[in-house]
Design a protein around this nucleic acid. Structure first.
Length: 86
DNA sequence: TCTGAGCGA
């Protein structure tokens, strides 16, 4: 499994739209659109989890893909920061 | 939410 960073996402897009889009290039395991923890507003980027080969194909195919007039930025994601103690 | 940085609890 590999995590994909997706940036420049139009505010009109939803997790379902992202799953459907990336799903054309492989099996999408999970989709997460990041929102501001204070205001709850969508921050314009998110992450998609796919199989390694599918992720590579999706990155190649969807990087620069124009979604609602905005070119998507798709790259392999860096590992998420560890969950802080609570 | 009505906004534009880009990597998550």
């Amino acid at each position: 499994m590999k995590s994909i960073y997706v940036g420049n996402i139009p505010f009109s897009a939803s997790e379902n739209d992202m799953r459907d889009l990336f799903g054309e290039y492989g099996n999408v395991s999970a989709v997460k659109l990041i929102q501001d923890h204070e205001t709850g507003r969508f921050r314009g980027f998110g992450f998609v989890e796919m199989e390694d080969a599918d992720a590579a194909a999706a990155i190649e195919a969807l990087d620069g893909y124009e979604m609602s007039g905005r070119p998507l930025k798709v790259n392999e994601a860096k590992p998420r920061a560890p969950r802080p103690r609570h």
